[in-house]
Simulated scan of single mutants.
Amino acid sequence: MNTSAIAANYPTRMRELVTQAKEQNLLRPRQLKYVLLTLELSLLLAFTVAAFVLIGDSWWQVMVAMCSAFLLVHFAFLVHDGAHFQIFRNPAHNEIFAVVTAALVVGASYSWWQHKHSAHHRNPNHMALDPDVKLPIIRAKPKMTGFTSWKPIRIFVTHQGMLLFALMFLEGISIYVASWKHLLRSGVVKYRSLQITLIAINHSTVVILMIWILSPGIAGAIVGIHLGLFGFYLGMVFALNHKGMPLITDARRSDYLLCQVLVSRNIQSNAFLAWLMGGLNNQIEHHLFPTAPRFTLRKLAVLVEQHCRSVGVPYTKVSLTESYRRVYLYVNRVGIGRSNDYICPLGSFQYSPQIILPAAPNHVATQTKGAV
């Protein structure tokens, strides 16, 4: 088989995939569906605020905190979709929607998140260029002495995958701190005044309601529960997308299809799980077609998977529990200095894509005889 010819045909094959998606009307924004979803979430949030006021100074507010955290994550999903121009045909309308929703409802900075997220989409899982690759882990040294030589420390270092999941409870606080640092820094920040104003309204409203309705002890607990669950829910969704998938170190620009598909994984899911994950269960399709609305990703996945199989590109799709298991094992292995286990063979794919086999669990794709 002529591997050079296959490699040369990749741009053409990607165009064929785009053509199929357009023919099935899978890339067009779904404005009406998003408007209805926004109204539904807004109504639920209004009921949640009303319940907060009516319940008063009671530990039943824990239920309200759980509901509010759940709803804010789904508003964050809307911000994500708006940032990718999935809602309106006019890019400016998408951006304004995302800015206002992020600041006024979620209470976070859109411009901070958008800068970080754009860098991720440009270079997914690139060890130097993707900010999401960085992990809060302790790397094992060849020889651990002193305090680090204690058995509990050694056990922790080599099994610190659980640390990642525990730290997700702090993600909510991290988002708000990073948002304010971004907005108050020197330099140009798009929509700075608007974001500061709307976030200030959001945060001051929360503080006023807490002081007015709750006693200090319950207020502190409710805020902690809300922030913890908000961050944990977000983290548990976004952690599944790329962690434990091949890492890119090659500075060369590879084929777009390869760069996006090899480092992403899908979650096997039904319509309910897809709703819970804001459509991010179809991460491969989202990276290939970032402007495709979440409502069409399941149908788009059928086309993409068939296409990847036909051109010999590994298409990773695992269960939810298996994905979490891989993330856990990945953090453990990187912590003990085994990050090379995940280096992506993009150089080989650039020349002979059809002779790279799908990855075995916890390993990158395996090259067979004849790979460059």
Score class of each variant (00 low, 15 high):
residue 255 D to W: 12
residue 111 S to K: 05
residue 135 L to S: 04
residue 130 D to I: 12
residue 174 S to W: 03
residue 63 M to E: 09
residue 140 A to H: 05
residue 207 V to N: 03
residue 317 K to W: 09
residue 280 L to A: 09
residue 124 P to L: 03
residue 193 S to C: 05
residue 149 S to I: 00
residue 254 S to G: 15
residue 203 H to S: 13
residue 307 H to L: 03
residue 61 Q to Y: 01
residue 316 T to H: 10
residue 58 S to L: 01
residue 18 V to E: 13
residue 70 F to Y: 14
residue 263 V to G: 04
residue 341 D to C: 05
residue 173 I to D: 13
residue 3 T to I: 10
residue 369 K to Q: 07
residue 72 L to F: 11
residue 241 N to I: 13
residue 266 N to Q: 04
residue 317 K to G: 05
residue 270 N to K: 02
residue 11 P to V: 11
residue 96 I to M: 15
residue 312 G to N: 10
residue 78 L to Q: 12
residue 260 Q to W: 04
residue 320 L to H: 10
residue 169 F to H: 15
residue 163 L to N: 07
residue 186 S to I: 02
residue 351 Y to S: 12
residue 156 F to R: 02
residue 165 F to I: 13
residue 271 A to E: 13
residue 193 S to Q: 03
residue 143 K to Y: 08
residue 365 A to Q: 13
residue 273 L to S: 14
residue 340 N to R: 11
residue 115 H to V: 11
residue 293 P to E: 07
residue 347 G to C: 03
residue 68 S to R: 12
residue 219 A to N: 07
residue 154 R to L: 12
residue 66 M to T: 01
residue 351 Y to K: 10
residue 67 C to D: 11
residue 218 I to C: 02
residue 234 L to A: 07
residue 134 K to C: 00
residue 265 R to F: 05
residue 278 G to C: 09
residue 205 T to G: 03
residue 326 R to A: 12
residue 78 L to I: 09
residue 287 H to T: 10
residue 264 S to K: 06
residue 51 A to C: 10
residue 220 G to E: 01
residue 133 V to F: 02
residue 327 V to F: 01
residue 235 G to H: 05
residue 172 G to T: 00
residue 151 K to E: 14
residue 171 E to A: 13
residue 29 P to T: 00
residue 277 M to P: 02
residue 264 S to Y: 10
residue 40 E to K: 06
residue 201 I to Y: 04
residue 171 E to I: 06
residue 112 W to N: 07
residue 82 G to L: 03
residue 175 I to T: 01
residue 155 I to S: 07
residue 66 M to K: 00
residue 333 R to H: 14
residue 196 I to Q: 00
residue 85 F to I: 11
residue 171 E to Y: 11
residue 252 R to N: 14
residue 7 A to E: 09
residue 28 R to L: 15
residue 87 I to L: 00
residue 200 A to C: 12
residue 303 L to K: 04
residue 236 M to P: 04
residue 209 L to C: 08
residue 289 F to Q: 11
residue 333 R to L: 13
residue 104 L to R: 04
residue 334 V to G: 02
residue 299 K to S: 14
residue 7 A to S: 15
residue 176 Y to N: 05
residue 278 G to L: 09
residue 89 R to K: 14
residue 87 I to H: 00
residue 256 Y to D: 13
residue 35 V to F: 00
residue 25 N to G: 10
residue 351 Y to D: 10
residue 315 Y to W: 03
residue 364 V to K: 12
residue 185 R to A: 15
residue 48 T to P: 02
residue 5 A to I: 13
residue 46 A to N: 07
residue 159 H to A: 05
residue 305 E to M: 09
residue 131 P to Y: 08
residue 33 K to Q: 01
residue 36 L to S: 11
residue 99 V to L: 06
residue 126 H to V: 08
residue 172 G to M: 00
residue 156 F to L: 09
residue 333 R to G: 01
residue 362 N to H: 11
residue 194 L to N: 06
residue 132 D to K: 02
residue 146 G to I: 04
residue 274 A to D: 15
residue 67 C to I: 14
residue 163 L to G: 03
residue 304 V to A: 03
residue 231 G to F: 05
residue 207 V to K: 01
residue 3 T to H: 15
residue 224 G to W: 12
residue 30 R to L: 12
residue 116 K to H: 13
residue 159 H to S: 09
residue 11 P to E: 06
residue 29 P to K: 00
residue 315 Y to Q: 04
residue 303 L to S: 08
residue 172 G to K: 00
residue 229 L to T: 00
residue 43 L to C: 13
